[in-house]
Design a protein around this nucleic acid. Sequence first.
DNA 1: CCTGGCACTCTTCCGTTTCGAGTGCCAGCT
DNA 2: AGCTGGCACTCGAAACGGAAGAGTGCCAGG
Lengths: 338, 338
Amino acid sequence: MLSERRLEVLRAIVQDYVGTEEPVGSKALTERHKLGVSPATVRNDMAVLEEEGYIAQPHTSAGRIPTDKGYRLFVDKLAGVKPLSAAERRAIQNFLDGAVDLDDVVGRTVRLLAQLTRQVAVVQYPSLTRSSVRHVELLPLAPARIMLVLITDTGRVEQRNIDCLAPVGETVLADLRARLNSRVVGRRFADVPPLVQDLPESFEVDDRPAVSGVLATLLETLVEETEERIMLGGAANLTRFNHDFPLTIRPVLEALEEQMVLLKLLGEAKDSTMTVRIGHENFHEGLNSTSVVAVGYGSGDEAVAKLGVVGPTRMDYPGTMGAVRAVARYVGQILAES
Amino acid sequence: MLSERRLEVLRAIVQDYVGTEEPVGSKALTERHKLGVSPATVRNDMAVLEEEGYIAQPHTSAGRIPTDKGYRLFVDKLAGVKPLSAAERRAIQNFLDGAVDLDDVVGRTVRLLAQLTRQVAVVQYPSLTRSSVRHVELLPLAPARIMLVLITDTGRVEQRNIDCLAPVGETVLADLRARLNSRVVGRRFADVPPLVQDLPESFEVDDRPAVSGVLATLLETLVEETEERIMLGGAANLTRFNHDFPLTIRPVLEALEEQMVLLKLLGEAKDSTMTVRIGHENFHEGLNSTSVVAVGYGSGDEAVAKLGVVGPTRMDYPGTMGAVRAVARYVGQILAES
DNA sequence: CCTGGCACTCTTCCGTTTCGAGTGCCAGCT
DNA sequence: AGCTGGCACTCGAAACGGAAGAGTGCCAGG
């Protein structure tokens, strides 16, 4: 077990390193923090901390930098979540309040988060799995072609074109639309399939293929779109660390362009507690020197999607966590209002 | 006027520089290209080319690199558009054919373009200015709250929530929906406003405020969404040149994150001919060492939007132009089919 | 258990040197 | 005229070497 002072030393190292971006030595530490002990003592503590794997030195004769394990301890035990200033909170609210539709909300959120944390922001669109159907619309495009529009209660809209084998009459379409809506509106996605299964039977034999086609597309959309979309912003912030790991920026950019990676990044924990994944705790190689701070957000008590930021392991955790949490809250509010 | 051989020298310089990414000297030139003259002669030609401003030397004792003006001449006079191989064309088609909706088409296009050119790809969503209304849907969210859904003939869907001051009856809503659609479906956006101006008058006095609200939102949506959305991909490709201009990558990334800049980037020429803007020809400072190759695409003869790539001025212009043109064509086809 | 002192280890920085690619120019050749 | 080979010159890049400085580990003493 590490003594109180050793933890204090670790905290000081993390803070200084995050601030200066340079390995920190014993002398500088005692000067900048009131530890009440001499550099020599700090050196001993550092030796212990290094032995335990919390810090490391890049080369023999340099200061120490925190390891992933060190950051982990810092985040878990030593750091709180730094609340935002009133001005910042006001700015968030103002910025988000002007949003006009869902795309806009997500877009604004991602820009806001990137600016606030000065890092790469990632926002997942509200998930469809947990959302429910608000409306289904069917539009004739051509005699044998229908457009299906699905509107969810989170404000998301999906559309699909359907090729029917035979022409479908306007009345049939209206009938189907009415029946479909009366059955599925307000229902959760997962509950929809059994509710529409027998629908074709109540139509004329001639029309059944078309009806089945529409239903198939609808169900497919429900399933497909469960793999959710993501918006990303603030990539330019990566270049701030450019001089430190110039070879790392490339794989990071690459990783960030893959939807799947991003989804996994945010998605692991499905509850709404804040997750911090540090360095090698990330599964993806390119992200080994980055940390991810993510949290769920939602309109009510339940998280419908996640958002977060990706930055270097050497980041201001308390500040970042504070910003992420605050933004998540406000987005939740906005979503609940609309 | 430059002699035939001098142009040939310029072409050789551009090609070599694009290939090697290093200033090219007279000796290397004569070795790699069959110019039929000695290095000394080439040196003289180079001196002339430099005097005319087509090439420059980074420092006194280095080879020459093309200037923006040199690239411009190269693109205009010396380079053709390199057609893609049959295999590449097939790959494009296959890749785009699987698209399921508009978002997907644009998403695939941007990835495809980035991969093909190994540069940053930019694709503008089909413009609303030139598109027309396919359907307008009104949904009750709450007694005094309506969701407006606008569907365009390019497959785009926009939605807005409207707060009405007073409750709106279901029948009124249905009535409004029917009238609205009968008037605007098939119309161009620009033609819509006069067509709906007098609609409130045909409703009961009590309902007029709500109707007006809906109309106002509709018109607003038409106007607002004219400022079109853009999708971007392949930012990781920027790092390929990292070692050449490490300080330039940052402003480029920043510029690329601004919608407005991107729009201007693509949008200048509104016809469907290919535009190449080289280095300082770009209005934006951060993009002074990049070139933009853009072309319009559309479902018919008319371009509805643009797409293109952003890369270093030192890029393979013929290849890039070929890829951009080919992709634009195929996307146009896909769009026309759906 | 803490502290001051001291020897030791590396990295970083800077000035110097060397090397070589590339140029410009000139005299001679076709 | 125009092209070519030769030659002196320039100047950046790479290699070298030493000095400076930061930081450590360890030890003896309080």
